[in-house]
Amino acid sequence: MKLRKLFTTDSVELNLESETKDEVLKELIQLLGLDDKSEAILFKTLKRRENLGSTGIGKGIAIPHCRSLVVNELRLAYGRKPEGIDFQAIDDEPVHNLFLIVAPPLEVSNQYLPVLGKIAQFAKDPDIPEKLQEIDEATQFLDLLEERAP
């Protein structure tokens, strides 16, 4: 599964406005276009995952992820916070690039874990953070995925 196919321009926000970890999780969730109740449940579930250990994996990257019954297919979103945000990342550095991954409880295609691993690989690529900072439009993000995560 190509990562490019899992994003749309609607699920990409290059200028996140939030200033806190909770707010930024909500802002990312909003990119998925769920109803209010689903957003509320998803927020709780993502927070519970964060409580197990931050998904801020270092180098300015966070990958909040979970399974939740509020989605019926794998859903992804990308948000960028150019000034950075405190996400209690493992290296204590501010987070600039956030990838949200939400999978339904059961998936026929079992894409969740491979996609999670692929996103982590992509984001950890040494020159990716810089490339992400240079992007001006959502389509460029999709192009970068196409090019670097074929």
Binding site: S18, E27, K37, A40, I41, T45, R67, P105
Partner: peptide, 28 residues
């Protein structure tokens, strides 16, 4: 920014709990 808490007033509190449980079980 405006970040209203998602509205859950209209949701049955027990349903909310069941859904949370379901999600926790999925991760577990």
């Amino acid at each position: 920014m405006m970040s209203p808490d998602p509205n859950t007033d209209t949701m049955h509190p027990q349903l909310m709990l069941l859904m949370e449980l379901q999600d926790l079980r999925s991760q577990h």
